[in-house]
Amino acid sequence: MSVLDTIRKYREAGYYKEFDYHWGMTVDLDRCTGCEACVVACQAENNLPIVGESSFAQRREIKWMRIERYWEGEYPNAKLNFIPMFCQQCDEAPCETACPVFATYHNQDGLNTQIYNRCIGTRTCAVYCPYEVRYFNWFTYTWDEPLERQLNPDVSVREKGVMEKCTFCIQRIRQAKDLAKDDDRRKVRDGEVTPACAQSCPTEALVFGDLNDPESRVSKMANDPRGYQVLEEQNTSPSVVYLQKVHGDEEAI
């Protein structure tokens, strides 16, 4: 009976609601200036390789976070929109079903995990991902002499043939949970953990937190009427909510 109960518990897509956390993020597009500080912070935090000019030209860059640019309108009245795009940690992630070896699966915190050392590199997950936020290590990348000293010891360095992606800085979440346990707290307090991108955002466009907690800043932001999810029609139920940019006041300014 207990086995059946366990199975039933995991049946629903949002099953982790009974667990402690459901990590999520909101992106306020009205605040995003496209400065790419988040991209650089992510690069530094997560041991992202420097692929080099020629690989970049071949579109083999590895950036767990990218700023997508969309132009609206024709030249004199053109408007530029930025959409920071990173792993949406979908509840019903298409990529997870693709992996033959369980290198990617959904964990109790609502995170879409990627276990690098289990990956065999079929790249199916990258094809299945509608957001194209999975990045493949085409070669084994190395760091030039002093640069390897800034590698983060809490994040593994990936070898060739491995898929990688945004983890919501899992190492920071792990550390925050560790400290909470030291204080004999069951849960991490809101604001105690911030991924590198949200931490570095100068306009605080990115807000990170626990969506299970209705009082958290991110939950309140996610309920904003401007909120929408990218490619909602794909039914992936992402954990990232984008807040629409408000147009219309430009002429007045």
């Binding site: 049946r11 992630a93 369980f102 699966y105």
Partner: peptide, 14 residues
């Protein structure tokens, strides 16, 4: 599926 319960993509375990 039962040795390690690993939900993927919101699908049922079995």
């Amino acid at each position: 599926a039962l040795v390690f319960i690993m939900p993927t993509g919101g699908r049922a375990i079995i």
